[in-house]
Write a protein that binds this DNA or RNA. Structure first.
Lengths: 194, 194
DNA sequence: TTTAATAATAGACAGTGTATAATTTGACGC
DNA sequence: GCGTCAAATTATACACTGTCTATTATTAAA
């Protein structure tokens, strides 16, 4: 039908990502379908292909949206907390994964082909979450250990992620872990203690 | 063509899992195809469906094979090591993931539908790896902390997994981590120190 | 009003997992 | 050896998928 006057390109892109993210939340990565996204916003599959080029491009955009929401969620949950901010951060990490189960899982279910690397925008979105953790660690570490913060943030993100992942994918249920949040927090505290 | 005299049911199952695992190693979960497995062993797709019931059943069998090989690898790498066995264990965890990149990733790329749970055989295969870690921790913890070993093993498996996962999926490259193995080992040592 | 460029689509292609009906095969009793 | 019966295997159809190209519809510019 050609150009629709009320949908300039950036707005169309936004429509697709919004609907795609909604569908990722509902059905998850394995059952996600670009065609279904197109159908729901009243466009044909070809349009999505025109805008994002490939399936990978679409998924990266949707996962990027999830990362943005995650960062926002972490910031919101930390705002105004003056007590145990590290605990609050770990809690928020888990909470987001639980509430956004499928979209969160899609961040890790999707892997780029071996020869591709993620666009710079995606790297920035990951880094934004990382920076939040760095800031929290700087606030809690003694000044003479400030330069440890970035390396520690990377390691503790991985640590908390591992606990969250095993919670979400059922590994901890198999192994009989009943309080993964406490376990993750214990590892965080040890590392900060040094 | 009917029954083939040289392929009783268990042997056919083994053929399919072996070829499926080979293909998982080569192309990974996203490009894995049950039809291609059937073609390569000279059977039709229907046969695979008859033996495994569903796609999920086939993938679970293949991932179970990967878990068995992982356990064997860990045991082999620990055998005869009388020095720093914890370091050796963490090394072996990473090594297996690197060498069996795609098959290892498939363990986590694949998620059962929300309403299904893994068969007991799969749970046992996961537990077998867990038990290796428990034994190593018991050996290194003071006797009065022995009963901590299972909980600590769960948490440290998650910790090492998180570091390994971020290494394999590119997150650590984005964040500039250059020695994830050392970071993982540092977390392990802190936790053992208590 | 014609022209050029852009936006969007329709349709084809080669795949996929799933499912069922039909066929081939092997083993057993006679 | 022959016919029977059940098990093993396949052929085929279905409704999907992501990808891609040629075509059409629409808008803006000349």
């Amino acid at each position: 039908m050609g150009r629709r006057s009320d949908h300039s390109r950036p707005e169309l892109r936004e429509m697709i990502v919004a609907e795609g993210h909604r569908q990722m939340l509902e059905v998850g990565f394995a059952r996600f379908s670009a065609r279904e996204v197109a159908k729901r916003i009243g466009y044909s599959i070809g349009t999505i292909y025109n805008v994002f080029g490939t399936y990978e491009g679409l998924i990266l955009a949707i996962n990027g949206r999830t990362l943005d929401l995650w960062r926002d969620y972490l910031e919101a949950r930390l705002a105004g907390e003056h007590g145990d901010r590290l605990k609050r951060a770990v809690d928020a990490y888990f909470e987001f994964a639980v509430v956004n189960r499928h979209a969160w899982a899609a961040l890790y279910d999707f892997r780029l082909p071996d020869d591709m690397e993620p666009p710079e925008s995606y790297a920035r979105q990951v880094t934004a979450i990382f920076e939040i953790v760095v800031a929290e660690l700087v606030a809690v570490l003694p000044p003479e250990r400030s330069e440890e913060a970035p390396a520690l943030a990377r390691s503790l993100l991985a640590t908390v992620h591992g606990h969250c992942f095993f919670t979400m994918n059922g590994t901890f249920r198999i192994l009989g872990e009943t309080d993964p949040l406490a376990a993750a927090l214990a590892r965080v505290r040890e590392a900060v203690r040094g």
